[in-house]
């Protein structure tokens, strides 16, 4: 299975929506606490179990998240620890990048997500308790969402409704927003502890999952939000990221500070259907390819990026 050794600690990994063999990795020096960051664009060699770096970009501060544009195959957007949001074009050489940089967030930007349906905007969430909406053709943010009372660790678009997104915060709430409304349309007190991540179901636009410091992943239905559909126990520490599969309706991937990546099917009795313990430090980034069914990637503070097929051992060579 392909594995890539980065010089810094991994924070996030994303498959390209245009090319099966391409993925981007966000990394940060000194575990993202102090120092520089770097974005790597990796290519998976066809057939052979290798991964090569096609280009990398250095940043003055940690890169906490990265995402691909859904409208341009070579455009990357990065969330930076110094509060900036930078746009890169991988078709251009490193000296020409970033092609744009926004400096609006007052504190660390934790996540960035591109709108998959409208394809003209993206969200960023920050430790300054806000979520910002950006458009590719605007010089500044279009809007700021200010209801959270603590770090917003994730903001993610609904896969079917171009104006709806969810945000997960350390204030223990999950909020559902419609950008056409002045405030959040729904507040779900999803966990008793900080919520570190959330993601929408790709097949049911009313279902989403949250992951938390309380070591659980919970699955919610916005139509009956008082009780979760499922509570998934199994991680030994806070669950850092949660991701719904683009290929199977009820499949969820999660990664945790317990250094493991887990696969869950929330609709079956024994929900934990797979556990991968290939990381030797906190596992903080997880992604599933939309182009190749079952292809997964993960990264962690052990500076490694693994790409593997579900059911296989990520460390196999």
């Amino acid at each position: 299975m392909p594995v890539f050794k980065a010089p810094f600690n991994g924070y996030s990994v994303k498959f390209s929506p245009f090319y099966e063999s391409r993925l981007a990795v966000a990394t940060a020096q000194n575990f993202g606490i102090l120092g520089n960051g770097r974005i790597h664009v990796l290519e998976l060699a066809p057939g052979a179990p290798g991964v090569t770096e096609s280009v990398s970009y250095d940043t003055a501060d940690a890169v906490y998240d990265v995402c691909w544009s859904e409208s341009h195959d070579s455009v990357l957007i990065a969330a930076i620890g110094d509060g900036s949001v930078k746009i890169y074009d991988t078709a251009l050489p490193p000296p020409s990048n970033p092609i744009r940089s926004f400096q609006e967030h007052a504190r660390e930007v934790q996540s960035v997500d591109y709108n998959p349906t409208r394809r003209d905007s993206f969200l960023t969430s920050s430790w300054d308790d806000t979520v910002k909406l950006w458009a590719m053709d605007r010089p500044a943010s279009v809007r700021t969402f200010k209801e959270h009372a603590y770090c917003v660790y994730q903001a993610v678009w609904n896969p079917k409704h171009g104006d709806v997104f969810a945000s997960a915060s350390g204030d223990c709430t999950l909020r559902i927003w419609d950008v056409r409304e002045p405030g959040s349309t729904m507040i779900i007190p999803a966990h008793d502890f900080e919520i570190l991540s959330c993601d929408w179901n790709k097949y049911d636009d009313c279902i989403l999952a949250t992951s938390s410091v309380d070591k659980t992943v919970k699955v919610w239905d916005v139509r009956s939000y008082r009780v979760p559909l499922a509570v998934l126990n199994g991680h030994g520490y806070a669950v850092r990221k949660v991701k719904f599969s683009p290929h199977r309706r009820s499949l969820i991937a999660s990664c945790s500070y317990d250094m493991s990546v887990c696969l869950w099917d929330y609709m079956v009795e024994d929900a934990l259907v797979g556990r991968y313990d290939h990381h030797t430090e906190f596992a903080v980034g997880i992604d599933m390819s939309v182009l190749v069914e079952g292809l997964m990637a993960s990264t962690g503070w052990d500076e490694l990026v693994y790409v593997w097929q579900q059911g296989m051992d990520p460390r196999a060579s």
């Binding site: 606490i33 350390g170 570190l196 520490y237």
Partner: peptide, 12 residues
């Protein structure tokens, strides 16, 4: 940043 990260590891 260290404080924020350590909050994630606080025993629940």
């Amino acid at each position: 940043r260290q404080r924020v990260l350590l909050e994630h590891l606080r025993p629940s």
